[in-house]
Amino acid sequence: MAGTLNLLDVTYADFRRKAERRLPRFLFDYIDGGSGTETTLRRNTADWEALQLTQKVLVDASKMDCSVELFGEKLALPLVLAPIGMGGMTSRRGEVQAKRAADKAGIPFCLSTVGVCPMEEVAKVSGTPFWFQLYMLKDRGIVQDVLSRAAAQGVTTLAFTIDLAVLGTRYRDFRNGMQGGLSPWGRARSGLIDYALHPGWLWDVGIRGAPHGFGNLAPYVKQSANPRDYLHWTGSQFDPSVTWQDIEWLRKVWPGKLVLKGILDLDDARAAVAIGADGLIVSNHGGRQLDGAASTAAMLPRIADAVGDRTTLLVDGGVRTGQDLVKALALGAKAALVGRPWVMALAAGGEAALTRYLAMVKQDMRTALGLSGAVNARNVGRGVLLGK
């Protein structure tokens, strides 16, 4: 069964601690870790925390509103559940649970190409559209087929990840066999010990949560006896030769909204706008790719100043609280994406824990809006930040 939800579990840190106890080490480290010495991973959260809100009093806060409009849809919060590879391994059929929680919270869920649950399974949750995230594969015929399947399931917003030309050096994954040509499923002795030490996860996910492959890619992986086969296939299919010409092709074949995920440079932001992207996600892949890169909180206002009036900006990386959402709006984003928070909450207590986390984020955002004088999410500007 999923972890038990405790009334004392209310913050990201609470859910993270419980997830660390419940998940096998390889899986927790895969989600929690970053690349290199994890400098950028730490910067992401530290730079959001360093931003100071102004406090304004005697402003009518009786009609606070956290909702925003994004790509023609109303969101109850300026928040999207980000695509997480293997997110469905944290709790039984995890992406399905996440979609249900997102629906209840009135926000979008974005399914990863390498999620455990296939898009067809996620679509059965409800008629509410979800987003889909895509990596470019060498076989463009497979890419077109994936896009056709996504459109058939009601996906209208595609998030295309552009910062994975090479895989970041993730030392935690090397130690656990997730990187360097090994797989945790191939490390029999240590893997079995790790599973035995986490019986709750083993029963809930390992035994009852099958199949454990990458559901969206299952039709194309001919030899798929275990997750190791999927890891080998995706490793051979991810295309490091992708350039802006490939984005032009993608723009032509995808009829819906196209959002490019992984922008951290002003020239890249301008190029993305020029090529016809509907939105940009200011992102450093959660500190998992180029260690030493700038934080997203540092780059968001610069990119907003350069192209914010010509496109829709979103941001991810280090966002943990409702206060962070207000800060993201102040710096020019229309919404933020969170990845680690939703999978940590899911690991800690399943859909109920994720629902609790999202409710606490909303309550925290209402507090920040009411005490900063902004009141309405659509009124947030840089004036709510001290010194901006």
Rank of each mutant, 00 (worst) to 15 (best):
A196R: 02
L197Y: 03
L197Q: 01
L197N: 00
H198A: 00
H198L: 00
P199E: 03
G200T: 03
W201E: 01
W201F: 00
W201H: 02
L202I: 05
L202F: 09
L202C: 05
W203C: 05
W203N: 06
D204N: 10
G206P: 03
G206M: 03
G206C: 04
G206K: 05
I207E: 03
I207M: 10
A210N: 07
A210S: 09
P211F: 03
H212I: 08
H212T: 03
H212G: 08
G213L: 04
G213M: 04
G215Q: 12
G215N: 15
L217C: 11
L217I: 14
L217Y: 13
L217S: 04
L217E: 09
A218P: 06
P219V: 13
P219T: 08
P219Y: 08
P219D: 09
V221R: 11
Q223P: 15
S224T: 12
S224I: 14
S224H: 15
A225V: 14
A225T: 15
N226S: 12
N226V: 13
P227Q: 11
R228D: 09
R228H: 08
D229K: 14
D229M: 14
Y230A: 02
Y230C: 07
L231E: 07
L231I: 14
H232W: 13
H232L: 15
W233G: 06
W233R: 10
T234G: 05
T234Y: 02
S236V: 05
Q237G: 01
Q237M: 03
Q237K: 09
F238I: 10
F238D: 00
P240Q: 01
P240D: 02
S241F: 05
V242L: 13
T243Y: 12
W244S: 12
W244H: 10
Q245H: 11
Q245A: 15
Q245W: 04
Q245R: 14
D246M: 07
D246N: 04
I247Y: 13
E248R: 14
W249M: 06
R251F: 10
K252Q: 15
V253Y: 01
W254A: 09
W254E: 05
W254H: 05
W254T: 02
P255Y: 08
L258S: 10
V259Q: 10
V259E: 08
L260M: 07
K261D: 07
K261T: 08
K261E: 03
